[in-house]
């Protein structure tokens, strides 16, 4: 399938800032499940800085904007040809050891409910079965409800609220998987949708012996297929954030996001 992406992030400041610096992970890498046809990231009045592929295989690009400026727009446009690999990440060039993804973070610290889930998963002899079990349990435990949680909500909080969005599902899977001794990470990306969205998508990846990294999307109750574009990974949402920025100045920041992911009729 060929997917097109248009993703606009607009930062507004009530008082102009003297300048800003951003670190982007917004460019997909090609692997068996996806081939990048064209992809472009632009920053209004931005100066592109260094760009490199990091150890996890993600393209990082640095941007700076020389102020004063009160509005900055980050635009992503691209086309990717995708293929269903049953959620298995194959042919992705990366060097980071799966062991690095066993470490809990503030957002993925497991509470008793998550530890109980981990126990249940650990009882299964096959890691792949355990991973599927976690995905199912988390989907049931956290009802997809936008607007209830925010970017700083932890996995444990989302579990006790029993409501959340894709970020919360991913965090909960990751927290339980790590507690069960399975390396797990957060993946940011896009998913085909009929309507415009106000956020990009996210899911979890669990490392399965002999298979490698396998994606699990509890929000949609499936493994990523050809409707998905994988962008970047990290220990949690903060670590995998598509944009990390720093503005010089004391202006209050407003954020608007619009995402459109569509198919091209072939």
């Amino acid at each position: 399938m060929i997917l097109t992406v248009e993703h606009v992030t607009r930062y507004g400041y009530d008082r102009p800032v003297r300048g800003l610096v951003q670190s982007h992970r917004m460019t997909p890498a090609s692997h068996e499940g996806q081939r990048v046809i064209d992809w472009e990231v632009g920053v209004s009045d931005g100066l592109a800085g260094g760009s490199f592929r990091d150890g996890a295989g993600d393209r990082v690009t640095s941007w700076s904007v020389i102020g004063p400026v009160s509005q900055v727009e980050v635009t992503v446009r691209g086309r990717v040809e995708t293929k269903d690999t049953g959620g298995i990440l194959r042919g992705h060039r990366e060097l980071v050891s799966p062991h690095c993804y066993l470490q809990a973070t503030a957002l993925t610290h497991p509470d008793d409910a998550l530890l109980a889930l981990a126990e249940e998963a650990r009882a299964l002899p096959e890691v792949l079965d355990a991973a599927h079990l976690l995905c199912e349990r988390v989907a049931k435990a956290i009802l997809w409800t936008p607007g209830v949680t925010q970017s700083q909500t932890t996995a444990a909080e989302a579990m006790s609220q029993a409501q959340g969005v894709c970020q919360d599902h991913a965090h909960a899977i990751i927290a339980a998987a790590r507690a069960a001794g399975m390396p797990a990470r957060y993946v940011s990306g896009y998913m085909l949708a009929e309507e415009r969205q106000d956020a990009a998508h996210a899911w979890a990846e669990i490392h399965v012996p002999n298979l490698g990294w396998v994606g699990f999307d509890a929000a949609n109750g499936c493994c990523p297929d050809d409707r998905y574009i994988r962008i970047a990974s990290g220990l949690d949402a903060q670590d995998a954030a598509p944009i990390r920025g720093w503005a010089r100045g004391d202006g209050q920041e407003r954020l608007e996001v619009a995402v459109a992911v569509q198919t091209v009729e072939q």
């Binding site: 990091d54 060097l95 980071v96 062991h99 690095c100 220990l235």
Partner: peptide, 17 residues
């Protein structure tokens, strides 16, 4: 492996550099 990769001082962000 765990002594290296799960070490608090191990910096995942510089792997490959």
């Amino acid at each position: 492996a765990h002594l290296v990769y799960r070490n608090a001082a191990f910096e995942k962000s510089v792997v490959g550099f």
